[in-house]
Amino acid sequence: MTARMDTRFADLKAEGRPALVTYFMGGDPDYETALAIMKALPGAGADVIELGMPFSDPMADGPAIQKAGRRALDGGQTLEKTLLMAKAFRENDDETPIVLMGYYNPIHSFGVERFLDAALDAGIDGLIVVDLPPEMDVELCNPAVEKGINFIRLATPTTDDKRLPAVLANTSGFVYYVSMTGITGSAIVDTDKVEAAVKRIKGHTDLPICVGFGVKTAEHARIIGRAADGVVVGTAIVNQIAGSLDADGRASADTVESVATMVRGLASGIAAARLAQAG
């Protein structure tokens, strides 16, 4: 496996705080702006970057990420350009893990082998592909793991103890716990249930557990971060981008900085997670 992911989570463990995992859509609202946002994320406090691969039919996403994908595609984003973007980011940052997140068809269309080679070349550390459950591991998960790219699985409230071993079997990097049955951007979760679920999954694996779906504010990040090894924020960042655009949907002078400001706020919540617990 690429070392960046394991190194990052080991360092954070030593530091005694959870990871801030930030999602945004590759190419939203355009290639250059999205690349500038990506470059600004680590400095603002993002520990892991999830880079969205836009897809025309995002079945697991709510309206915010649907629209972000549409903006990116309308701006001419393709899977090839998303990989290029990661590669451009790597020129100045060889430490922040990058996880590509999206749906299978663009990868299927690109060709699995060709995609994995390009992903390695671009410095990708992991993949999250929503519509590939363990039953379909032969498609992409197994070839990815063979090439040394982490395949990060989603575990959900419907993944019971009986099913959990199958879900964890070929997972590496971290486990992404989906805090609710629902789509991205839904309302905040029952945090007690999330804590219980994280503990349940920890009984089955030593991998870090990151929690996403419904985490919108620094306060959410602080609360979720008490139990989890990482907190994923996506829709809130995507909404921040959307809110910064001009009337024609183009990036404004403020777009990159407004995202960075928001991420700094989330990072402060993350930093407070374990302090609060200690106190």
Binding site: M59, P134, E135, M136, T159, D160, R163
Partner: peptide, 20 residues
Amino acid sequence: EDGLFGIFGGRFVAETLMPL
């Protein structure tokens, strides 16, 4: 048994739906 007709078909769904 995997739901395949040759290479076609299968179960390409999100984990939340898989148990169902």
